[in-house]
Design a protein around this nucleic acid. Structure first.
Lengths: 110, 110
DNA sequence: TAAAGTGTGTACTATACACTACACATTATG
DNA sequence: CATAATGTGTAGTGTATAGTACACACTTTA
């Protein structure tokens, strides 16, 4: 994350640690710790704001903080058996196989 | 959950609240609150032990407590983009459609 | 060269989560 | 009918989570 921000900072001074921290609504000292990988916690709300700032994928950034988007969690919790089965079954499938399923579902071949 | 236990208790006195609580390793007063739906929290470990006691599905019981099995969480966190896409795509698919995918993956049609 | 801006260290804080300990009244059992 | 077992109420506890507040030293900028 640090590297990502520093890259943007080169082009635009609006991406200093302090200014980014201000925009996502936390103290600069706290963002500093997070960027250096100290054991700190960031709420889903702030992670999403940070991802938007840095043009990062929200789900990836959440994952880096050990989290899963609440909308995904709710989908699973509403039908725990079905989704638990599915996910465990796909655990060792390569990305392209899983994405093939995504495409087929999207294309309505079901 | 209460009903489930009371059913088992009729056949076997080993399913009193106190004895079940003792076996899963919590205080009876705490299990009492949980069964009556007071806002209490139960760790994944205890939820699994309780599910085993009552022959309930672990993923269902976890879901009732607002949780998702950590093994599922880890699968998602390792490939957040792929699984996030998949799950959101399947959000409104009926159970039988999702389960069809599960079967096809299991049968190795991929 | 003074002021503004930068990243970081330390200490503290509040709420959520996951329980325990123990007393109490009621019901069942020998 | 004594006692063993049952479910529940209240109060307290420790750790995890999600931060704030402010001071400090260094670097740019006007």
């Amino acid at each position: 994350m640090r590297d990502r921000r520093l890259l943007l900072q080169k082009k635009d001074k609006k991406f200093s640690l302090r200014q980014v921290a201000a925009r996502i609504g936390i103290q600069p000292s706290y963002l500093s710790k997070i960027e250096r990988g100290e054991q700190t916690y960031l709420s889903e709300e702030k992670i999403i704001a940070l991802a938007d700032e840095l043009n990062e994928d929200i789900d990836v950034l959440l994952a880096l903080h050990g989290k899963i988007s609440t909308d995904i969690q709710e989908i699973i919790r509403k039908r725990p058996q079905v989704f638990a089965q599915l996910i465990r079954e796909l655990k060792n499938m390569p990305d392209h196989a899983v994405l093939k399923i995504v495409r087929e579902v999207r294309d309505g071949d079901w």
